[in-house]
């Protein structure tokens, strides 16, 4: 399998590419197991964003891995012990695919049978994600936000150098006219698709997270073809920074609004007179919050990484 090839390769570029392929294959695997939402996310995140970030960082490090002087015996021992423990654990597991496993008996039936009446959204994954376990998703949004803060603070560029450098960075693909035209045609479609995924998450696979990633991917495509400087004119880093916060605040704000209206935190039922309408409104708003934070953090990540590496390249020259 691809994973094995990754261990043996010294060429980091190839390794990153392989890991992208690995993610895409995982997405296929998830699809096969009926996890459409997960497949969607894995394809956009694992194969898309994380490969991009890896490539951006590769730009500034050596392409080839050094010869490792590792102690394979110790590592093999630890890994072997872990694997054995897990295999030992699998022996008593309910069989793959069997419908009478405990997880299909206890909590899940209520989601499958009652979520239509209680939340009113056909996509059960969305109703659990945004409503039953909405608090987890708030935490997840906060995790993304935290990652944004981490990267922003680590890869901060001071102001003067930024201005000097800004003028000197041309787009790498200035000459590719066909690509540029195609991209210009694609961009609105991608953004439109992002919006579709954002607001159609109730009915099909998708939702705030996936939409945010797709939106960011559109912007990143634009950046790659038209240069970082151009893209940064539209998306100022201070604006991006504020928007990341706004997304989280929107999500938490919905929760607080529910509290003020007399419900529990994130209890959307109280938002409208009719609980199901309230749920709809709540889910719409929190998904929007997730979408905003995810999109802005992803764009920020990409900008920070490429900016840092481009700067590095120029300093070296």
């Amino acid at each position: 399998m691809t994973a094995l090839a990754i261990t043996r390769m010294n060429d980091l570029f190839a390794v990153v590419m392989l890991s992208g392929i690995y993610s895409l294959m995982s997405a296929g695997f998830f699809l096969d197991l009926d996890a459409v939402d997960v497949a969607f996310t894995e394809a956009s995140v694992g194969a898309g964003i994380s490969t991009l970030l890896m490539l951006a960082s590769l730009k500034m490090v050596k392409r080839y891995e050094g010869k490792t002087k590792y102690k394979p015996m110790l590592a093999l021992g630890v890994v072997g012990a872990t694997a054995l423990l897990l295999i030992y654990g699998t022996l008593d597991m309910p069989h793959f695919g069997s419908a009478d496993a405990p997880i299909h008996q206890h909590v899940a039936p209520r989601y499958i049978n009652d979520s239509m009446a209680e939340v009113g959204v056909p996509n059960i994954v969305t109703s659990i994600l945004a409503s039953y376990r909405g608090y987890d998703t708030l935490g997840e949004t906060l995790v993304i936000f935290t990652a944004g803060i981490g990267v922003m603070s680590l890869l901060r560029v001071s102001r003067e150098t930024k201005d000097q450098q800004q003028k000197r960075v041309p787009a790498d693909m200035q000459q590719q006219i066909i690509l540029r035209i195609v991209a210009k045609m694609m961009l609105p479609l991608i953004l439109l698709f992002a919006l579709y995924v954002q607001f159609h998450g109730d009915y099909g696979p998708g939702g705030g997270f996936q939409a945010g990633v797709i939106f960011a991917a559109g912007i990143i495509l634009y950046t790659m073809l038209f240069g970082l400087s151009t893209a940064r004119l539209v998306f100022k880093s201070s604006l991006l920074q504020k928007l990341t916060a706004v997304g989280v605040l929107l999500y938490a704000g919905v929760g607080v609004a529910c509290m003020l209206l007399g419900g529990n935190f994130l209890d959307y039922n109280v938002l409208r007179h009719d609980p199901v309408h309230g749920q709809h409104l709540g889910i719409l708003l929190v998904e929007l919050g997730v979408g905003i934070t995810v999109a802005t953090v992803m764009i920020t990540l990409f900008f920070k990484f490429t900016w840092r590496t481009v700067k590095h390249k120029y300093i070296e020259q």
């Binding site: 197991l33 009926d34 996890a35 939402d37 997960v38 996310t41 894995e42 995140v45 694992g46 964003i49 994380s50 997880i103 299909h104 909590v107 899940a108 989601y111 499958i112 059960i124 994954v125 659990i128 994600l129 376990r133 987890d136 998703t137 935490g139 997840e140 995790v143 993304i144 935290t146 990652a147 997270f209």
Partner: peptide
């Protein structure tokens, strides 16, 4: 199929990329 693991893994993917 059981939707709950899907939800958990969506969260875990996000944590992973972060």
């Amino acid at each position: 199929s059981n939707p709950l693991p899907h939800v958990l893994i969506l969260t875990a993917i996000v944590v992973g990329i972060s």
